[in-house]
Amino acid sequence: MELMFAGLALGGLYALLAMGLTLQYGVARILNLAYGIFVIAAAFGAYVAKVQLGISPIVALLFSLPLGFGLGWALYSLLLLPLVRRTRAGPQLDIDSLLATFGLMFVIEGALLWIFGGNFYSYSYLSHPVYIAGTPVEANRLVVILVALALTLLLHVGMNRTRLGLAVRAVEVDPATAVLAGIDARTISALVFGVGGAVVAVSGVIISMFLPFSVSMATEFLMKALLVVVMGGLGSISGCLLAGMTLGFGETIVARFIDPGLTLAVNFGLFIVVLSVRPAGIFGRTV
């Protein structure tokens, strides 16, 4: 039972992490490698808010949404759009955006290391147990699970039930044709980067609530998000949830029953297998 909640919380987190990335990559066709460091930056933001300013993480969560959206939007419009223009969205865009987002990742990483150093940070929030069917579960884990579910639902509905969601899906399927329907792929891409930014911010705040974090974990989160995206199939919200849960439970089980030192190896191994066998994703549709 306890194992189940641990797996659910971790899985929910991974699914959430991957959702922002899958939207950004699926729609804008730009892989944002600075994704992981943004997550960590948000976690540090929540830490500073809680420990130094005494702001509750729940309040920070609410503030992080518009802030993350703005940053994501700015990232696309200021840094990436010039590259899209220069390369005319050709193959060189892959390499250029890769280098640009890596560069951004290092700059932010450097800044965080400078301010906070390389140590692990954590604070205690809602860490008292809540009893569910007799099993003690830390309250913050429940928050993680609930927020992850709520956001998944929100994004799923947003993508499938709204006019804007339809436009986003149109760009995802075929940017060139979407233009004919009066949809500007670049505006939609900027929007989606904003949504991704909001998801990043929420994920970061959530992580700070229940996991100790450090600057060096940025690549780990990036890789996990990528793994889930690839497994779930690009651009698929429900694929993210399924793949995220698989990874979360898999990791919890390996750590508990086999060897915690192997979880990362299992992660990357799984990644390599998925990439070489089924690049379109395990749960993904074939494109």
């Binding site: 193959p91 890789m223 690839v230 990362l264 990644f271 390599i272 990439l275 070489s276």
Partner: peptide, 21 residues
């Protein structure tokens, strides 16, 4: 041989993961 079918971005991620693995 494992990466022959991969496109540019996935090749980058693959090679990164290989080092990490």
């Amino acid at each position: 041989m494992l990466t022959l079918r991969l496109s540019g971005v996935y090749f980058v991620i693959f090679t990164f993961s290989l080092s990490e693995l």
